[in-house]
Design a protein around this nucleic acid. Sequence first.
DNA 1: CTAAATGCAAAGGCTTTGCAAGTTC
DNA 2: GAACTTGCAAAGCCTTTGCATTTAG
Lengths: 164, 164
Amino acid sequence: MESRIRPRAANTDPPPSRIERLCIERGLKMTGQRRLIARVLSEAEDHPDVEDVYRRALALDSKVSIATVYRTVRLLEENGILERRDFGGGRARYDPADRGHHHHLIDVDSGKVIEFADEEFEALARAMARRLGFDLVGQRLELFGRKVEAEPTRSGGRSKARSS
Amino acid sequence: MESRIRPRAANTDPPPSRIERLCIERGLKMTGQRRLIARVLSEAEDHPDVEDVYRRALALDSKVSIATVYRTVRLLEENGILERRDFGGGRARYDPADRGHHHHLIDVDSGKVIEFADEEFEALARAMARRLGFDLVGQRLELFGRKVEAEPTRSGGRSKARSS
DNA sequence: CTAAATGCAAAGGCTTTGCAAGTTC
DNA sequence: GAACTTGCAAAGCCTTTGCATTTAG
């Protein structure tokens, strides 16, 4: 039955978030908590750790426990919706998987993380693995850098970057 | 039997290990435990975690506590003698820093780690950072691969690899 | 209604630390 | 002898889990 004929499911019924839709596609049972966490993650533009997700979820609606956040991010990871990252510091950070394949450049001064993709690197990675006798099934690349004084070479190039 | 007058220090007095020498250079106080741990690390050809180091040290001379191993690897790391790695799995692994700049390819089936270096990649990493407006100060590259059936392309190339 | 999700608190790994006793320089 | 190192056990993080209760489908 089409429930969208409802006169006003106003403030209690925000539209499904991007990640909520992915959950539904995969047939995951959607509870209030999961919807909430999905929303927090959908809106995140950074790489939150579990604490971050928990805090943001609480701020929206204080009906989650941290255990549920842990269980949910694990579930999402197992379903390929999130990717777990480890930038050091002991805690795992999460990154929506549908942002596409990308790597990270960490600004060592500010701690900011910049995402970028680079086709040339992808090709090289495959080649390096192949040279060692392997098929590449995954990779992890992190660059640590410091802002250069002069203007960067005009980024007309092959890399597409997005700061976060 | 005390110190016999012997031409050279025999079985009770092994020559200082590579890492022990580095410690001395840096003016670190050398205790029996540190010498032992230094030796274990000098002889390691892999990427041992603290447990590994502890076990190997115990096997040589059961006079270390795990707390000391933790304290020592941290000290060595702070002194640039070891590098801490994180290949996932929750525990830190250690890698002598003087092996030169290299990366890792993890065989996803066996868990074995292969070290390799690649000049082309080094150059590309610098270029990618530069393109984003940064000077490269560090990097981390890990490839995950699966052994290819056919023979690898003859490795006449630019990469030098060493299995561990 | 049934299988699955949640909360809570307890427990589990890895790592660090306070303190007394032992060593190095 | 002063300062540092070690051992031991306790404590700290982050994360997982057992169990009773609630909830989605």
